[in-house]
């Protein structure tokens, strides 16, 4: 089975701050990590490969620094990594990103499955997975929490819902986005790290993927950010103290005027 995993390098949520003046992310000195949901996508791909055989190709669109993350993907079991990188891609919104990724993926061999994380923790849009599926004209399932069966032609998957899950059968090739419940990502192995050190990273630029320059980066992005602001905190918060009984009494007192 040929599996493609799309991963993104994101700032580590542990040390993210907003610049108080511009209200954008202050990225200075912030560690970059692989988007946590993408780790689960990669792990699932590697498990599928271990079970059914095949090959896992990891694709990331990003700046040259994303190479570090791609090597990490190899140490966790990816066979091949592709960095889609060009100054022309800068400022892309999800529309331009899905265009760019779809053009890059068309340059690769045919695939049976594409896995993405359900969303990236920086933008939080959850749009790239479904957008990419649309561009590539393959069936799409979001929030996959389990891949049950696979006969090479179709897959049975569980889609996480608020009140349970849906069981779906999807013909391949297809694209799924996964939730963290799907698996526990592995820790890189020693052999994996040694392989990662030596692996050659394929880099695709705008002309390699034969992209239309009008559809790339800021130019190709219909999204316009008008203003960024932190919403004001509404609602009051009170902490109750004392024994359970005392706290219940206090709570009752606070609520009784409303009853």
């Amino acid at each position: 089975m040929k599996i493609i995993v799309c991963v993104k390098q994101v700032p580590d949520a542990k040390d993210v701050r907003l610049d108080p003046k511009t209200n954008t992310l202050a990225r200075d000195g912030v560690q970059s990590i692989m988007n946590p949901y993408d780790r689960h996508a990669l792990e699932e791909a590697v498990r599928l490969k271990e079970k059914h055989g095949g090959m896992v190709t990891v694709v990331s669109m990003g700046p040259p620094q994303a190479e570090v993350m791609l090597r990490e993907a190899v140490s966790c079991g990816a066979d091949e990594v592709v960095l889609v990188s060009d100054r022309a891609f800068a400022g892309a919104d999800t529309w331009a990103t899905t265009y760019t990724l779809s053009m890059a993926i068309r340059k690769l061999d045919d695939f049976d499955l594409i896995l993405c994380g359900k969303q990236a923790i920086d933008g939080d849009t959850a749009q790239v997975g479904p957008g990419l599926a649309e561009r590539l004209q393959v069936p799409f399932v979001a929030y996959v929490r389990k891949i049950r069966e696979c006969d090479g032609k179709a897959m049975q998957v569980e889609r996480l819902m608020d009140d349970g899950y849906d069981l779906l059968e999807v013909p391949l090739p297809a694209l799924f986005t996964v939730v963290k419940e799907i698996n526990e990502p592995r820790i890189p192995s020693l052999k994996g790290k040694m392989k990662a050190k030596g692996i050659e990273i394929t880099v695709f630029n705008a002309s390699d993927i034969e992209a239309d320059p009008e559809q790339l980066g800021l130019k190709g992005s219909p999204t316009q950010v008008v203003r960024v602001f932190s919403p004001e905190l509404k609602g009051e918060r009170a902490m109750l103290a004392g024994s359970a009984d005392e706290q219940v009494a206090q709570l009752y007192e606070k609520l009784s005027p409303l009853l």
Binding site: I187, P188, S189, L190, K193
Partner: peptide, 19 residues
């Protein structure tokens, strides 16, 4: 050496994340 450092890194990650 680079390989020895990798041993340390892998073992440390297991220690921090699991042990």
């Amino acid at each position: 050496s680079e390989e020895q450092q990798m041993i340390v890194d892998v073992a440390r990650q297991i220690t921090e994340e699991m042990i």
